[in-house]
């Protein structure tokens, strides 16, 4: 079981003049096992900050995050993270990038390479196992980054706009692949995105945040099975609803 529980989380960033910017306030969220959660909201609403707090890369000013009943106090390989920027280590080949987490755990070379090979195969890049990141396209790099996060067998996979830098076609393709990975590995995924379309296509629940200070405005369940039809009327309807929510809050601001 890998439930994530976000309880009353707030985050204030200190400013130069001694005052604070309140990025998040009173965020409560229960994420169940094997859910696919998408965080959306207007620019600057703190969705990335919330993800980074779950990852342990930022500390909440108030409240707490617990995973399986244990409080998050810092980064941990039990929470895999895929960043928006290309985060592969350029000096390591694909195989050694994917094996990095296992190497840190002290797993022997043979065994960690075998495990890494399995995950590289899972993302369909076996023929590139010995390539350096500069030899890969943007989409391939993110696939390796996902394999690298999964190789640690994390409880939760946190993704911060992982496809934001990709062109529309590659992006659609990556979304399909991610869904198939999610089905195969049964991981809980928390996914931050700017694209409402992406959220409606992927999520089992969409969490819409309010403008700064971000808190939860609404949680929308999407019970339809995957793959989903982007052109269906229901799809368009949910997309319109979410967009309106984000638009309204931006106008108020």
């Amino acid at each position: 079981m890998s439930g994530v529980s976000v309880a009353n989380v707030g985050k204030a960033f200190p400013k130069e003049d001694g005052t604070f910017t309140q990025a998040l306030e009173g965020v409560n969220l229960e994420i169940g096992d094997t859910e696919f959660i998408c965080l959306v909201g207007p620019s600057g609403c703190g969705k990335t900050t919330l993800l980074r707090i779950i990852a342990g890369l930022e500390t909440a000013t108030t409240g707490s995050v617990t995973i399986e009943g244990r409080a998050v106090t810092g980064p941990d390989p039990k929470r895999g993270m895929v960043f928006q920027e290309y985060s592969l280590f350029p000096w390591r080949r694909v195989i050694d990038n994917v094996a990095f987490g296992l190497e840190m755990k002290g797993v022997g070379k043979e065994e960690r390479r075998r495990t890494a090979d399995r995950y590289i195969e899972l993302v369909g890049l076996s023929q590139f196992r010995d390539a350096y990141p500069y030899e890969l396209s943007g989409g391939m790099r993110q696939r390796v980054a996902i394999a690298r996060a999964l190789a640690n067998d994390p409880d939760v996979l946190l993704m911060d706009e992982p496809f934001g830098a990709l062109d529309a076609q590659t992006r659609n393709h990556m979304q399909k692949e991610l869904l198939s990975l999610w089905k195969q590995t049964k991981k809980t995924i928390v996914f931050v995105t700017h694209s409402v379309d992406e959220a409606v296509y992927l999520a089992t629940r969409i969490v819409v945040l309010t403008p700064r200070p971000g808190s939860i405005r609404e949680v929308i369940e999407i019970p339809w099975p995957h793959p989903r039809d982007r052109t269906s009327p229901e799809f368009a309807e949910v997309r319109r609803r979410v967009l309106r929510m984000i638009d309204e809050s931006e106008n108020i601001q």
């Binding site: 810092g74 980064p75 929470r79 895999g80 993270m81 960043f83 920027e85 985060s87 280590f89 996060a149």
Partner: peptide
């Protein structure tokens, strides 16, 4: 780059 350091942390460099 900060993202390398953070990736290192998330992957178990403690």
């Amino acid at each position: 780059p900060k993202v390398f350091v953070e990736a290192g942390k998330v992957l178990g460099c403690d």
